[in-house]
Amino acid sequence: MKLSFELNGVAQYLEADPGERLLSLLRRIGMKSVKEGCDTGDCGACTILIDGRAVRSCLMVAPQVQGKRVTTLEGLGTVDDPHPLQRAFLEAGAVQCGFCTPGMVVIAYELLSRNDDPTPDEVREAIAGNLCRCTGYVKIVDAVLLAARWKREGRWR
């Protein structure tokens, strides 16, 4: 079936099977930041934004995004021009193997888009559904709080 939606600010017109997972479709068109971890909505590695809200792309079929605005990590920053959240993750040392990182950055982006002065507990609640098996989470929370500070100081683009 034909599908049209906005992906990272660019209009997409493409073919998808009605039962194709959104996660698979996004990876098929090059959005490799979207990771397949558990495939049951539990790990958060496939987290993306739809109309600004974080969702699990493994628990969606492609046609659900018809007419919607989809954002993946690729839409937030690039290697040459990282998003402030990505810079904060680097600066805080919040990355080890990196598998969970795209989902972590995306979920943190949603939190900070609604609340740019979160408490550590609010950060922990926001990322509670995103599993990281390396870091122990402490530095991830530090990174999100650092990015929040930068945002309050007007240091986001």
């Binding site: 079936m1 009605p18 039962g19 997972r21 495939d39 493994c58 628990l59 079929v61 046609p63």
Partner: peptide, 12 residues
């Protein structure tokens, strides 16, 4: 998720 048998998607 395996949507292999799904052949139609309708928006009511």
């Amino acid at each position: 998720m395996d949507g292999g048998r799904i052949h139609r998607f309708h928006v009511a």
